[in-house]
């Protein structure tokens, strides 16, 4: 009887242990279960896109899915000898440079003045973010209307002050400038908020003690604010140049790459090659080149501005 109860006890003990082990295993699995769907989506869609794009760029895939010979780097060689692609690369570089310079100048001055303005600051802060909510298409249409040759406000103003109207979207350089303006309008708000959050995190006592020491305003900006918000500068520069390198939504409806090919940036070239000429491999190769530019620019910014992305 006693022995019986003992075995029963030990059996139960064993069972408990097993259960404990099971529940311990379960506990260990919890974070993996929680993370699984997110990882599945991200790898399944975005990871797939990058790997498939890389592979596709090494083959010659056209309209047909069947016959696709391996061609190595031929697509890339073709691109870098293709005048139309080189043109789009050149346009992209000008477009990105213009957008980043203008975008940073605007967002930095907006951020500084938003920080300074305490009274109605909230209104302007809210206002500054409004273009961020508007689609690229809507932005493009509004800018097209603003700069159109016959009914555009800008031309009406020019005429009123006695200047000649300019057909902005028909002139290669003006059209590119309008693209840059629309793009900056579209991407600047986020950069402004990033910079503002950087300035707000600076200890205000630093400003006060600098003022007591008689430091000049420009001096405070250069010696205190800019170095302290360097990481935020890096992040907003990355944002500005990424968004610009891949800008598609704004330019397609605004100019469709025209006049001629004067505003055809790389993303537009890629779209035309892939969906106009059905050369999917060539399109993928352009994707790889665009991503390469993104990585290079972000590494440069991170190095310069010493951003620590880890935490």
């Amino acid at each position: 009887m006693a022995a019986g109860s003992e075995t029963k006890y030990s059996l139960q003990n064993e069972k408990n242990k097993k259960e404990q082990k099971k529940s311990k295993f379960r506990k260990k699995m919890i974070p993996y279960i929680l993370v699984f769907p997110a990882v599945l989506f991200v790898i399944g869609v975005l990871g797939y896109a990058i790997i498939a794009g890389l592979l596709m760029s090494l083959f010659d895939i056209r309209l047909s899915f069947g016959d696709a010979p391996f061609v190595g780097l031929e697509n890339y060689i073709y691109l870098f000898t293709d005048e139309i692609f080189l043109n789009s690369l050149f346009i992209s570089l000008i477009f990105v440079f213009g957008s980043v310079v203008l975008g940073l100048a605007l967002s930095l001055s907006f951020a500084l003045s938003l920080y300074k303005c305490k009274r109605t600051g909230n209104f302007y802060k809210a206002l500054a973010l409004v273009p961020y909510l508007i689609s690229g298409i809507a932005t493009a249409i509004m800018f097209r209307f603003l700069f159109s040759g016959d009914v555009g406000l800008i031309n009406l103003i020019l005429k009123t002050v006695g200047l000649d109207a300019v057909n902005f979207l028909a002139d290669p350089w003006w059209a590119l400038l309008v693209c840059v303006l629309a793009n900056v309008w579209f991407v600047c708000p986020f950069a402004t908020l990033v910079l503002l959050s950087g300035i707000q995190s600076v200890d205000p006592e630093l400003f006060d003690s600098a003022k007591i020491d008689g430091a000049h305003r420009i001096h405070i900006l250069r010696k205190i604010i800019l170095p302290l918000i360097a990481p935020m500068m890096g992040i907003s520069l990355i944002w500005l140049s990424f968004a610009s390198f891949n800008m598609f939504d704004v330019i397609l409806p605004l100019t469709n790459g025209g006049p001629g090919r004067s505003t055809e940036v790389m993303a537009l070239y890629m779209y035309n090659v892939a969906f106009g000429e059905l050369q999917y491999s060539l399109g993928s190769a352009v994707m790889v080149i665009i991503l390469f530019f993104n990585v290079v620019t972000s590494v440069i910014y991170l190095k310069i501005f010493n951003v620590n992305y880890a935490d």
Binding site: G47, M247, M287, N294
Partner: peptide, 24 residues
């Protein structure tokens, strides 16, 4: 590793990956 896997694609712009996604 999982965090990096999830975060790095954050910087991949959507317009650039339409071609492989389309074929997929």
């Amino acid at each position: 590793i999982l965090l990096v896997i999830i975060l790095v694609p954050r910087i991949i712009p959507r317009a650039s990956i339409i071609v492989p996604l389309f074929t997929g």
